[in-house]
């Protein structure tokens, strides 16, 4: 059980006239090895939620528990927490600063106590995980890369610490289709290796493909929670919460309205296709 939020509220600039309550009594339980998708309209508190998970913000009320231990308790080892939980901010390409890609990816390992050889091994592996060769990329300037490449380098910089839990804030915003596919493949691969993943995104298709469970926030509260099938079941409810349902689910809804009943559970293209196949090709053969 990696993560638990207990009735967490968070207020920015608390106690001043400009206070903004970003989260109101959010409870959440995340299981080990899970991919959790987080959706919600702009300003609903997604980024605040994940910064609380990573221990970068301290709840105004409530507790954040990692393995049953309050991460904001005075005795908790923050450095150990940071090593276990990796957070990739939105537009992580903005955080690159070193002269070479290799140095930038090594940056997070400075206080890790690893030997230089171990660090190099980690950096090599992290770069390879995001699809770069250490030999070809390592010596380049990160600032000379393209936007998508920069983002991959920044992700490698977080992967190098080998966190058990990885949190991404809108990681595919502004990526081209290929970049998006590559990112989703990366998420699946990391998850298959046992990493728990939190994915904040507006992209319902991507979440339907790779999230085990979805969380929809509205105005700082959890509005919906469940599998993609459950969350996307009621298309109208999703619209009221200002989130998209996945394209296959929307198609299924349109077909249903036009007399071809498609069950609400068909939220991925595979699901929709198999339903249609069963209906239109006798015996399920094409």
């Amino acid at each position: 059980m990696p993560f638990c939020l207990e009735e967490v509220s968070f207020t920015y600039a608390a106690g001043t006239p400009l206070a903004v309550q970003a989260l109101r009594g959010v409870s959440l339980r995340m299981e080990a090895g899970e991919v959790l998708g987080v959706m919600g309209h702009t300003g609903c508190g997604k980024s605040t939620l994940i910064q609380l998970l990573a221990g970068l913000l301290v709840p105004t009320h409530g507790r954040v528990l990692l393995d049953g231990q309050d991460i904001n308790a005075p005795g908790c080892d923050r450095a150990a927490l940071r090593a276990r939980v990796g957070l990739v901010f939105q537009y992580p390409e903005c955080q690159l600063f070193e002269i070479t890609v290799a140095k930038d990816v090594t940056f997070g390992l400075k206080h890790s106590g690893l030997s230089p050889a171990q660090k190099e091994e980690r950096v090599r592996a992290a770069l390879e995980t995001v699809g770069f060769s250490y030999e070809r990329m390592g010596a380049q300037s990160p600032l000379a890369l393209s936007g998508g490449e920069k983002r991959r380098v920044a992700i490698a910089g977080v992967l190098a610490a080998r966190p058990e839990i990885l949190i991404f804030d809108e990681p595919i915003a502004g990526l081209d289709p290929m970049g998006r596919e590559r990112f989703l493949a990366l998420v699946r691969r990391l998850n298959a290796q046992g990493t728990s993943i939190v994915l904040v995104s507006h992209n319902a298709d991507a979440l339907a493909q790779c999230a085990d469970r979805l969380l929809v926030l509205k105005d700082g509260c959890v509005a919906l929670e469940g599998t993609a099938e459950q969350v996307f079941a009621d298309v109208e409810a999703a619209r009221r919460l200002q989130v998209d349902v996945s394209t296959p689910r929307a198609l299924g809804q349109m077909l249903t309205q036009r007399g071809v009943a498609v069950p609400a559970g068909a939220v991925t293209y595979e699901g929709l296709l198999s339903v249609l196949k069963e209906r239109f090709c006798a015996g399920g053969n094409p």
């Binding site: 940071r82 957070l87 992580p92 903005c94 955080q95 997070g108 206080h111 977080v158």
Partner: peptide, 16 residues
């Protein structure tokens, strides 16, 4: 605002 975000981002990947 940007300074705050970048500071947090670097802390999140191990800066002190």
């Amino acid at each position: 605002e940007e300074t705050d975000t970048i500071r947090k981002a670097q802390i999140a990947r191990g800066a002190r």
